[in-house]
Design a protein around this nucleic acid. Structure first.
Lengths: 191, 191
DNA sequence: CTTCTATGTCAACGCCTGTTGGCCTACAGT
DNA sequence: ACTGTAGGCCAACAGGCGTTGACATAGAAG
């Protein structure tokens, strides 16, 4: 029988090292300043290996920016806790994984990364918002508003590093931002 | 008497053309992809002129990213209309001037631009927030929260171009986002 | 009319980039 | 033990970048 999952290759460790270094560099420097040479140096291999395994810089980024928001099923969340659940989830998700920071930085300057960001929110966030039973006509808009506050928080806290936003404790952020998301998800315009 | 303002130079038109082209390119491509050669071509002059008039690429960016939010004096605004006033002002301000888009894109990848963004919000937004008489201990935090929603809106609408956020009419955005800013400015955490 | 300076062009520099192809080398299959 | 192949390194390429200095020219100053 044809084995779909290829057996472990001897180079898997190298591939993983490249991916880890790539995520770090993309997150720290953005797409154009993160050079293949620097990534290869971090991974302690030759730049040509990156090309062999990922084809091109774009291919490497595509592999490194694969990201799953792992949003919970919102239909199982108490309806008045949707906002709180989401902020807390987002904070935890990207505090522990720099992939989203990489995607965020790159999306500012790289058209492909921007497209990827759009798909991420269309496929994952909008889908989750649709999952708890809002009027389908408004879900896209609600998801977009949630994205605007959510990405703005990430942008100011992890990219631009605005001091007051950086210094706020996660629980304070939850307390302030949760009501915003709650209203975007379940409220009406004008409050 | 020493004339502080130097009299009109013959090259003022050229300088202005360079600055205009630079803002366009920086806004469209970000700091690293916007090349001096491309900017010079847009301005129909030689790349070396850019160096002569602005010293370096960094110097050109510094000149092109000079930005005044022109925030109104919030102490003259009805206290329950602060949020609405701010969203409307921001939308108008950066819909008509691509300088902020340039700064936003560049701030993602260029450390100097990020610093400039921090100072812009510390000097202008935080100052305006302080101007309407909140508890001084909380103004920085309130300004930071306003920045997070405000920049998130700009990021999703003008940089990443998330379809639902792009398609919303300005008045709809005002209706949805104004209560958020209002709460950040005058409310308490946890709503 | 002459002279000097501001304005602008041209060609080149050194450097860094993504990418390529050739070459060793060590391990897995027989 | 032998051999084929996958893993890895090295050197080089073509192109683009910011930046520089020498040179032309036109307009103002005298």
């Amino acid at each position: 029988m044809t084995d779909t999952a290829p057996r472990a290759r001897r180079s898997d460790a190298t591939r993983a090292a490249i991916l880890r270094a790539a995520r770090e560099r993309f997150a720290a420097d953005g797409y154009e300043r993160a050079t293949i040479r620097a990534i290869a140096a971090d991974a302690r291999i030759d730049p040509s290996m990156v090309m062999r395994y990922y084809g091109s810089k774009e291919g490497l980024f595509a592999a490194a920016a694969e990201f799953d928001l792992r949003l919970p099923d919102l239909s199982t969340v108490p309806p008045d806790r949707l906002g709180e659940t989401l902020v807390r989830h987002f904070l935890g998700r990207w505090e522990g994984d720099e992939t989203l920071a990489a995607l965020l930085r790159a999306a500012s300057t790289n058209p492909g990364a921007a497209e990827r960001m759009r798909r991420l929110f269309a496929d994952q966030l909008a889908a989750a918002v649709a999952g708890f039973g809002t009027d389908p006509a408004t879900t896209a808009r609600r998801a977009g508003l949630v994205a605007s506050q959510t990405l703005g928080l990430a942008f100011t806290r992890y990219i631009v590093r605005l001091p007051p936003v950086v210094e706020m404790a996660p629980e304070d952020l939850v307390a302030w931002v949760a009501p915003t998301l709650q209203r975007y998800l379940t409220g009406r315009p004008g409050s």
